[in-house]
Nucleic acid binder design. Structure first.
Lengths: 335, 335
DNA sequence: GTGAAAGCGCTAACAG
DNA sequence: CTGTTAGCGCTTTCAC
């Protein structure tokens, strides 16, 4: 109630006539407390408005309960959803999340990891940041870590990702099944998972005996627009585009519309990620959905394993993805 | 380097032959330290990989350096940008941000505020959450607070917002200048600022001698779609829509397209917020831009004033907004 | 300038 | 079951 000071364990102890230690045990649900006592303590704590001082708790107890999360692109809705899912998964097992939005560059990611270490976090989850293996390794060697986004081969680092190559295969096969043969791919640059998606695209095209058509991109709206210009200059023109993520797909759609081409009649498009906007855009985008919560759950599981035994062998899990059919794909016009 | 323990102030003290206290002072930039000493200390700290334990620091020092941020809608890009801007503004004055993504409902917001209080945060910034004044008041009476989103009349609470009413006026006047007279408004429900935007819309329509046409909404994609159905049933039909935010504008656009209407030829639309997607959507949306960083800076300024003097009178600032012309507005078809 | 000592609020052995 | 005793790592008077 008062602003001047906080209610401490001592206050609750005084109010109940118990010792600090016993009150602490009661509040934390430690087994060695009579149930009636626990009642009294809880009630007193409530009445006094006691809130445990987490700083003191962390200081006193060896093992922290708080894990850091680094987010590479805070404006990417997929990553925010992931942060949210991680937060939920962590809460479910009694851990707290401390989120950093300031880890866009590799350099920032490293310094943020250092700052979080000052919080004496019990572990760290990196979501698609940093990008250079050396930076990842530097962070990973200092605390229990899990990397979410793709598999990275680094000692003592567990990784969680989606079956990116498989998703790309599904996208290509879907397009082929609709009758497309000239299927272009807008790549994703250094974004996590992009190399795999490219591999999947190339493999699926090869299996079908089709010639790959690749345009470089970087997961950005602008690159999608640029890619369209490059693609429309080709003869014969591709009839379908598999974009490495939804944003570049949106960019492509945008430019296509400007050029007077209709989707899906003149060009089919498949994206990747299924960001909320994919279903809610002007054009409902057919895309590959990455599930968030399962990846988050797996990440927390892996992190806990590592926290329990820091020298445990690293693990790597790739979770399934699924094609979500909407309205950006149709059969190509006959040649 | 070692995982077993952390490097502490004690270690740095041992390595330099100084006392803990002096090392602490040196590292924090306390004036009472010889410059040569400071050099030595810094170098030793670096070499040893010392990272101050923030938990211990918070515990020992009375005034915290860490402020909590509550976000109402983590999936709303505008709010994430705001969090990001707040984080930057805080960092600029030596404060750290602890972000909570778990404050969607009023109830969660209150409990998250409690949890953050356990971190002994020096202050709290609420971004559009909670919504009920009673809940806001409950949080605000316990720590220095600033509410970002709209003005709320509560003792000891400073508020920051945008000139929502003015933005609505600009939108309506822009539409009127293009020749529209039947201008509908999709409202925003209980969302922060919506009441003001509605007020601005009503006032601007009244000034122009036009009859208001309102459809209820809730800032959601779906409500925009529903609103269009309601609007198209009207005779005569409105020729323009002012949506309370960009999402409902996108929903309206989506439904309009399904109904075979073209934008802006058959219907003009103005949104509110200027989310990143507004410029990068299939259709570039004319909208009212809220500046993020200035609001964030103002929020931090207000919070610091309140931290310095908890009983200072509350302040309230409304920041300007601007119309961003893109391609969703045109003159109406002649009747 | 620098060091010694006293906690901040809590948990974790250890005794009872 | 409950109380006592030590600290966790840091900042902060207060001496020197």
């Amino acid at each position: 109630m008062q602003d001047k000071g906080f209610v401490t364990l001592e206050d609750v102890a005084g109010a109940t006539g118990l010792s600090r230690a016993q009150v602490s045990r009661a509040l934390r649900g430690d087994p060695g407390v009579k149930e009636s006592t626990r009642q009294i303590v809880r009630e007193a704590a409530d009445r006094l408005g006691y809130v445990p001082n987490l700083a003191a708790r962390h200081l006193a107890s060896a093992q922290g309960t708080n894990v850091g999360i680094l987010i590479g692109e805070p404006l990417n809705p997929f990553q925010i959803r992931m942060a949210h899912a991680l937060d939920a998964a962590l809460a479910r097992v009694g851990l707290e999340a401390t989120l950093s939005l300031r880890a866009q560059t590799d350099e920032d990611a490293v310094s943020e990891a250092e700052r979080l270490r000052g919080l004496r976090i019990a572990g760290l989850i990196m979501v698609a940041t940093p990008r250079r293996p050396a930076a990842i390794a530097q962070i990973a060697q200092r605390q229990p870590c899990v990397y979410v986004g793709e598999h990275v081969e680094i000692a003592r680092l567990s990784t969680i990702g989606a079956r990116n190559a498989d998703g790309a295969r599904q996208a290509v096969e879907h397009l082929i099944a609709r009758g497309h043969r000239r299927i272009a791919h807008i790549t994703g640059g250094i974004a996590p998972g992009s190399a795999e998606r490219q591999r999947g695209y190339l493999a699926a095209m090869a299996v079908a005996g089709l010639a790959p058509i690749e345009v470089e991109g970087d997961h950005d709206f602008a690159c999608g627009r640029g890619a369209v210009d490059a693609l429309l200059a080709l003869t014969p023109r591709p009839t379908a585009i598999f974009a490495d993520n939804d944003f570049s797909a949106f960019g492509a759609i945008n430019r296509l519309a400007e050029c007077g081409l209709r989707i899906p009649e003149d060009m089919s498009i498949v994206g990747f990620d299924d960001v909320p906007f994919a279903s809610g855009s002007h054009l409902a985008l057919t895309t590959i959905r990455q599930s968030c919560q399962p990846q988050a759950d797996a990440a927390v599981l892996a992190l806990r394993a590592r926290m329990a035994n820091p020298s445990a062998p690293y693990s790597s899990r790739l979770l399934p993805v699924e094609l979500v059919e909407r309205r950006s794909v149709a059969a190509p016009r006959p040649d």
